[in-house]
Nucleic acid binder design. Structure first.
Lengths: 215, 215
DNA sequence: TGTACATCAGTGAACGCGCGTTCACTGATGTAC
DNA sequence: TGTACATCAGTGAACGCGCGTTCACTGATGTAC
């Protein structure tokens, strides 16, 4: 018997429990980092036996991959929604910073220290490029005639990654600067490297966004 | 019996073995990340029994702290030496990037995902501020009369962290932009987020450094 | 120079622990006729 | 509506493993007289 979602009660229950497991996983990560993520510990917290979780995730790795996928999905949706609601680059910077600050561990799971040897499956890299697509759209169509910098001309020859996107080199440059500048402030802020420096990172970000190329 | 170093043979042997242990620790981290760092595994690789390492490091945590300290020390020395040899901000950016690329795991141990609840001892934060001191020196004495941006005036009121340093707000701003921009590109590059984008990060960094504030 | 003693590096056994994962199973839920 | 069967969630025991750390010890190295 199926319901309007095309889901049987059992399927809905499965999805619900998968979500609950993931939520507990995030709590563990927030408490002690990714290395502390343990299927047995999650099961115990949920009042189940350890092996029960294997009905929902084939392995610890699969659970972590699911968390990474969710993180990218959440970021991509957040950014897309903001842009479609009319946000410009300043707005996007604020939205991304808010997203990151609301759950630093989720941010670091994506943009923090990479695990040696781990390679994300293709569908995840596809989601991550959604983010870049929005950034390119938000950077607008900058005229190709603007005075090209050396990096701009370099980008003319290395723009396969923006494949299909009708962005000029100046636009690519702007998007890359947006991304790297924002990430620079954000990751240092969230990692606590500004502790003891009492300035407001938001003001720094604002000014960094005001001075994006092309200038 | 002491030698010219003021070290007994035994002390020199201790120091040498501590260094050897740390080297094996770095190799383990490079191979599988910090979580995989295991005292027993290091001992086995060195042909010793596990408990022997406790003569050299009181615990796994103390070993990790020593690694972090060494990493900061190495960066601070590298930056200081380069600056004293006449490097400007461009030179420093190159030197820091080279330092990071020569051992990405060491870079991420410092600037990557923070471990929840871990607080570095005071001597380590002192070393990290050495780096900032060099940056401030390299940013030079910018005139206080340059057109102050909103962030500049904000910094006028929040500059305790540069305590004792006779830097203007414009200089602090310049140093912060240098640091965050460089870190933004570098951490994304080293984490592999540019994979598939065939551009050269060095050119992006160069241009980011050319457009540092004040402008 | 030799002897007595203290220092300390390293060993091997043992501790308790929690991990990921497998397996055979019970029992509840859903399906087909 | 009831009955027979299939599906699947969850359990408990067990596997082998490696971890950090402690302890009592052996034996080599250094020190004092």
């Amino acid at each position: 018997m199926t319901d309007p979602d095309g889901q049987s009660p059992r399927e809905r229950y499965r999805a619900q429990l998968r979500a609950e497991i993931k939520q507990h996983a995030w709590e563990q990560i927030a408490a002690a980092g990714v290395p502390a993520l343990s299927l047995n510990a999650i099961a115990k917290r949920m009042g189940m036996s350890g092996p029960a979780l294997y009905r929902y995730f084939a392995s610890r790795d699969e659970l972590i991959t699911a968390l990474i996928r969710d993180a990218y999905r959440s970021l991509a949706d957040t950014v897309r929604t903001a842009f479609d609601s009319g946000a410009d680059l300043f707005g996007l910077a604020g939205v991304i910073r808010g997203w990151a600050r609301s759950d630093p561990q989720r941010y670091f799971l994506i943009y923090g220290t990479p695990v040696p040897g781990y390679h994300a499956p293709d569908d995840i890299t596809a989601i991550s490029s959604e983010v870049m697509t929005v950034l390119l759209e938000a950077c607008g169509a900058l005229s190709a005639g603007s005075p090209a910098t050396p990096f701009d001309s370099h980008l003319e020859n290395h723009r396969e990654w923006a494949d299909g996107h009708p962005a000029t080199a100046a636009t690519l440059h702007r998007a890359l600067s947006f991304w790297t500048r924002l990430h620079g402030v954000l990751s240092l802020e969230l990692a606590g490297h500004f502790t003891g420096m009492a300035f407001d990172p938001e003001l720094l970000i604002t000014e960094e966004m005001e001075t994006l190329p092309p200038r």
